[in-house]
Design a protein around this nucleic acid. Structure first.
Lengths: 156, 156
DNA sequence: TTTCATGTAACCATAATAGTTACGTGATTC
DNA sequence: GAATCACGTAACTATTATGGTTACATGAAA
């Protein structure tokens, strides 16, 4: 996972968990499936754990699994847990007293705020179960799965 | 300008140009006003020039100025010229044949596409003249300008 | 012809992100 | 209860995107 996103790793993994909710997945397996490192997986899933989306267990039957039914976990939940809003404008503190900068900031903030809202609204309507469903559908039909290992959000 | 955005530099500068359209601004002056380097200014404004938003001149009376009236330049024009869309999801090429990744990608792309559209719609409604107007307004009233030198879009 | 300002290439600095190594802790199995 | 397994976390390294800097060529005006 080079220059990619925690969000895609998280959603991808939760999607797989939803397919087989009873089976715990180890960081190592997940990492291999995502061409990344177990520690990175733990870091990302750790963010989901504190939000109560997944649970982890140590020892022999250890690993990660969903904390509740996939239907009850929305993409927005995951998005929020990751905590890396795609669309926020944070003004830096140091004032400069330039009215243009203020106007500029107002305009951009307003636009970004609404765009972010639209994004979250979409995400709130999708659950992890929907992703798993797509997997089932794909397995049946011709499977238009030409996806790749990661999604890529623009460099910030 | 550390860890900031070309967009804010561009909009800020065009805003000032709109206030005094007949006066050419040199890269050096602009850079000083933005706590950055003249070369950086040229790089950014160069993007606007190829889109016909500004013109530049060499020599003694040289510098940068708007290529057309500020009312005819929207924030969206600038946003497009900068070419760093805030909201795009580009799938990496390497397929992995995982249906979940495909579903994931579809969901995120759909959401991001609409959010981006909302963003551009906002930007298309604002012109550089509006920013300059804010400056005029600010000069009169108490000027709620507490802005700062730059805006900051999230790290990508 | 001198000076000023852009145009551009090339390189350096910084910071954000991911990848790695290492080791501690608790749970399970033998 | 000893061995093993898997997470939890700290600390460090690697990579990469972005800006900053230097240097110099080009062209326009005084």
């Amino acid at each position: 996972m080079k220059r990619n996103n925690k969000l895609s790793l998280a959603l991808h993994t939760l999607g797989h968990m939803a397919v087989a909710p009873d089976q715990a997945l180890t960081s190592e397996v997940i990492a291999a499936h995502n061409a990344t490192n177990p520690v990175v997986v733990r870091r990302v899933l750790g963010l989901l754990r504190v939000r109560g989306l997944v649970v982890s267990g140590k020892g022999h039957a250890g690993g990660w699994r969903l904390a509740r039914p996939a239907v009850q976990i929305t993409v927005a939940d995951v998005y929020d847990a990751i905590g890396a809003p795609l669309m926020t404008v944070e003004p830096l503190a140091a004032a400069q007293g330039c009215a243009i900068v203020a106007a500029l900031h107002a305009t951009v903030t307003e636009a970004a705020t609404e765009a972010e809202a639209v994004l979250r609204r979409h995400f709130a309507r999708r659950t992890i179960a929907d992703l798993a469903q797509a997997m089932a559908d794909g397995a049946r039909g011709k499977s238009s799965a030409q996806g790749k290992g990661d999604l890529h959000f623009p460099p910030r």
